[in-house]
Simulated assay, not measured.
Amino acid sequence: MHLFFYGVLREGVGDWPFLAGLGLGSEASVAGALFAIPDAGGWYPALVLTRAGHATNVVGTLHEAGDVDIGVLDAFEGPQYQRMAVPVDGWEAGGSEAQAYVWTGDLPEGAEPIAHGDFVRWLAETGRSAYSGS
Rank of each mutant, 00 (worst) to 15 (best):
127 G>W: 15
46 A>P: 07
128 R>S: 02
85 A>P: 00
122 W>Y: 05
94 G>Y: 04
69 D>L: 03
41 G>M: 11
122 W>T: 08
26 S>P: 00
116 H>C: 03
97 E>L: 06
118 D>M: 06
111 A>K: 14
109 E>H: 09
123 L>Y: 07
130 A>S: 13
122 W>G: 01
125 E>M: 08
32 G>F: 01
104 T>V: 13
76 F>Q: 03
125 E>H: 01
106 D>S: 14
58 V>A: 05
124 A>P: 02
46 A>Q: 12
127 G>D: 14
71 G>M: 01
120 V>N: 02
27 E>H: 12
98 A>T: 03
61 T>S: 14
115 A>I: 06
102 V>H: 08
77 E>A: 10
56 T>Q: 15
110 G>Y: 13
52 A>I: 01
38 P>Q: 12
86 V>G: 09
96 S>F: 05
126 T>I: 07
29 S>A: 13
113 P>N: 05
102 V>C: 03
33 A>N: 14
96 S>Q: 04
34 L>K: 12
38 P>E: 11
98 A>K: 02
116 H>K: 10
66 G>E: 10
36 A>E: 11
130 A>K: 06
106 D>H: 11
113 P>I: 05
120 V>F: 01
73 L>K: 06
43 W>T: 01
92 E>G: 11
77 E>G: 11
49 L>F: 00
117 G>S: 09
111 A>C: 07
34 L>T: 07
43 W>G: 00
29 S>V: 09
29 S>I: 00
